[in-house]
C-alpha cells in the first residue's frame, strides 16, 4: 500500500531551532552563526570583534562548536565573557553544530545578561550551511588563502549567508590572488551578499564588519 506523505525531513531539528529562537526573543539576544572552513580565522575574528562590541556597552557570549578540543574557548578566555564549548569530544565528532547542541549550550548561559551571542560553527563549508539553529543572521568567513573558487564549490553556504568576511587581507601582497575575483565569485552565488575584506592582524576592515553586526533588520 502507498502511504501518502509530504514531510520536511529536518522538522525535528527545525523545531528545536524554533525553541532556541523563542528563548532569544524572550531575552532580547541577537545571535550570529559564524561559519567557514577550518583555519579561516573565525576565532581570531571574534577575538577582535568582541572588544569593539564591548566598547559600545554590549555584553557578548560565544558558543564554541569547533571540534577536538577546548583550544578555541581558551583563546577567547582573556575577553572575560561567557564561552560554552558545544562539542567536547576529544577526537572530533559532528560535522556541524546542530540546534540540539545549541539548546544544550544555552542552559549554561544567563541569557538575560547577554546582548550578542556568537555561534562559532565547526570548520566545514558543507554541513553547517544546511541547518537552521534559531539565529538572526549567518555569516561566512573566507580567508584569501583558500582560493577564489570556493563560493562556486560551496554554493549553499554562500546562498545562506548575509555577509562574507574576506579574512587574512594582510597576506594579499604575498599571495597570487585577485581580490576582485573573490568578490565576483561570491556575487555569482549571492548577489545580495555584504562583503567585508578584513585583517584580524592589522585591524583593517573590522569596524565596517562591526557596523554590519549592529545594523538592524
Amino acid at each position: 500500500m502507498d502511504i501518502p506523505v509530504i514531510r520536511d525531513v529536518l522538522e525535528e531539528t527545525n523545531a528545536r531551532a524554533a525553541e532556541n529562537r523563542e528563548l532569544f526573543d524572550k531575552h532580547g539576544v541577537f545571535v550570529v552563526n559564524i561559519m567557514s572552513s577550518p583555519g579561516s580565522g573565525k576565532t581570531t575574528l571574534l577575538s577582535k570583534t568582541i572588544p569593539l562590541l564591548q566598547k559600545r556597552g554590549l555584553k557578548c557570549a560565544v558558543i564554541e562548536g569547533d571540534i577536538t578540543s577546548t583550544l578555541d574557548s581558551e583563546r577567547l578566555r582573556p575577553l572575560g565573557i561567557p564561552v560554552v564549548q558545544a562539542n567536547t569530544e576529544p577526537f572530533g565528532g559532528d560535522c556541524h553544530v546542530g540546534s540540539h547542541l545549541v539548546q544544550a549550550a544555552l542552559k549554561h548561559f544567563d541569557l538575560a545578561a547577554i546582548d550578542v551571542l556568537f555561534i562559532e560553527n565547526i570548520g566545514n563549508l558543507v554541513c553547517p550551511a544546511e541547518f537552521y539553529l534559531g539565529e538572526d543572521r549567518k555569516a561566512v568567513v573566507l580567508s584569501i588563502t583558500e582560493g577564489e573558487d570556493k563560493p562556486l564549490k560551496y554554493p549553499l553556504m554562500f546562498r545562506e549567508c548575509k555577509a562574507c568576511v574576506l579574512s587574512k587581507m594582510d597576506l594579499a601582497p604575498h599571495l597570487d590572488v585577485n581580490i576582485e575575483s573573490f568578490k565576483e565569485n561570491i556575487r555569482k552565488t549571492n548577489g545580495n551578499m555584504d562583503i567585508f575584506p578584513v585583517s584580524s592582524k592589522t585591524g583593517e576592515g573590522i569596524e565596517k564588519w562591526v557596523e554590519w553586526l549592529l545594523k538592524k533588520g
Binding site: 502507498d2 502511504i3 506523505v5 509530504i6 514531510r7 520536511d8 549553499l156
Partner: peptide, 11 residues
C-alpha cells in the same frame, strides 16, 4: 532546489 522532503512510503 532547497530542502529535503519525505514524499512517499510503500508498505
Amino acid at each position: 532546489g532547497r530542502g529535503i522532503r519525505l514524499t512517499g512510503i510503500k508498505a
